[in-house]
Design a protein around this nucleic acid. Structure first.
Lengths: 246, 246
DNA sequence: CGTCCCCTTGAATGAAGTCAATACGCGTGG
DNA sequence: CCACGCGTATTGACTTCATTCAAGGGGACG
């Protein structure tokens, strides 16, 4: 099973064999490949599809009039961009690729088919939505209250755990998709200061980030340095224990 | 018509007379009155109701382990706290009153009744959810990219416009619910710096905030000082033009 | 071999936080 | 009616954290 969406949704609900078949079909219908730094959809455009990231990394972002940019969310494999986007006539922000990505475009009809006759999928998608909102809230806390050191540590933690949830880590390391400049647009810091903060994290032995590989030798230590509380990711709730092939 | 929920939802969809009757009934069933600075629901509790603010002002917030607090969202009259909260077994944040508030508690059954036979209400509630998410994203941008001056101006702008959307402003002024210290927990600034920033805003003639009354002599000027783009509040979309009594 | 992007470093500047004292405003109770 | 107390707002002096500017280094790729 290498479908990251299924992998993730199984954190939220037990899926039946048929559920999985339907998900696989939906996520292989319309594929779209993008290189790094391209727009998936830009502010002002009308959304036509729910975008599902199959591989690579994308982000939601917003520009201010004077060019400052804030990254608002990351999308890793298995993430759906906007489940309810069809009633919007205009995007109020943009979505772009960070690395090369493969995206499945899910039409309105495909989404209806997924949910209509598949209550467990529907439930899992509800969870997906709730968790996305919780992540957004946590980012608000991160930007508002944490120091640069904690803030960068928190982003590293979160992304690592989310990658782990879809099987994209090896033990204590993973492919790291972000440049320092993107990390700066995420944390609201200058690229220079992100660089210095990463050096502090390295000096403290909390992370080893070289090239495109991130290694976290002691995840608990990094968590506590970041004041990271895993609960908002809701990776451990009751739904997944129910039997689905009933 | 003094029901703030109806007032707000009419920005999102045309409601029929029956729609409104159902909403009024639902929002007068279980009332709860709180004084300022009380918990509506605390982190860790199991949510039993969707909370609807009828009067006063409340907020969503999160504490870090060491006591720092971030206000994550405001709830003004007409705002629903968490539409899909019933699948959660535990809140990952708290909701508390800022001023004295009156809240209507909507049970799961009440929510189902509201939506089942009332497609326009359902549509309007979808919009409510989308806009709440958009506001959360904008706060992320606010904390990440804007200067203290812009940041405070942005919060003043947003709250003023949201109060205006439910008829709680008079021309260019409104009752202001927040203390400087709450504004600090919102903007991620220290209370002292919020004070100084407000003085700058006053000196620039952009706001007059005395006691509990906010006056904005030139809203457009304040907007541009804050780099405020109204689009994320989605107050002007197509749904409201459709006829509902069909 | 050169170019582009990303990372790194140092020095100077600037924004916001901290600490501590003081003032104001309002409700309570003497 | 006035004194008191408490929460909130204001001010000044100093410190800390983060930005800016500017220059140099390293690796990947054509």
């Amino acid at each position: 099973m290498d479908n990251p969406l299924i992998r993730k949704l199984e954190h939220y609900a037990r899926l039946s064999t048929e559920d999985k078949a339907v998900l696989i079909k939906a996520s292989s219908d319309r594929l779209r490949k993008l290189r790094a730094h391209e727009d998936v959809i830009a502010e002002g455009e009308k959304p036509r599809y729910v975008n599902l990231v199959l591989s690579g990394c994308a982000c939601r972002f917003k520009h201010l009039d004077d060019g400052r940019r804030q990254i608002i969310a990351y999308f890793v494999p298995g993430d759906l961009c906007d489940l309810n986007v069809f009633i919007l006539s205009q995007m109020d922000h943009s979505i772009g690729s960070i690395t090369d990505v493969v995206i499945a475009e899910l039409s309105r009809e495909a989404m209806e088919e997924l949910t209509m006759a598949h209550p467990r999928i529907t439930l899992a998608l509800w969870w997906e939505t709730l968790v996305a909102a919780a992540v957004q809230r946590e980012w608000t806390v991160n930007l508002g209250q944490r120091s640069a050191f904690e803030r960068v540590a928190h982003v590293l933690c979160e992304l690592f755990l989310r990658l782990r949830a879809v099987g994209l880590t090896n033990d204590d390391s993973c492919q790291w998709p972000l440049t320092q400049s993107e990390l700066a647009d995420t944390t609201g810091l200058s690229p220079v200061h992100v660089n210095r903060t990463l050096q502090e994290l390295r000096a403290a032995g909390l992370v080893a980030l070289r090239g495109k590989t991130l290694r976290i030798p002691d995840l608990d230590a990094l968590k506590s340095a970041a004041m990271f509380n895993t609960n908002y990711l809701h990776l451990d709730h009751e739904g997944r224990h129910l039997d689905a092939n009933d």
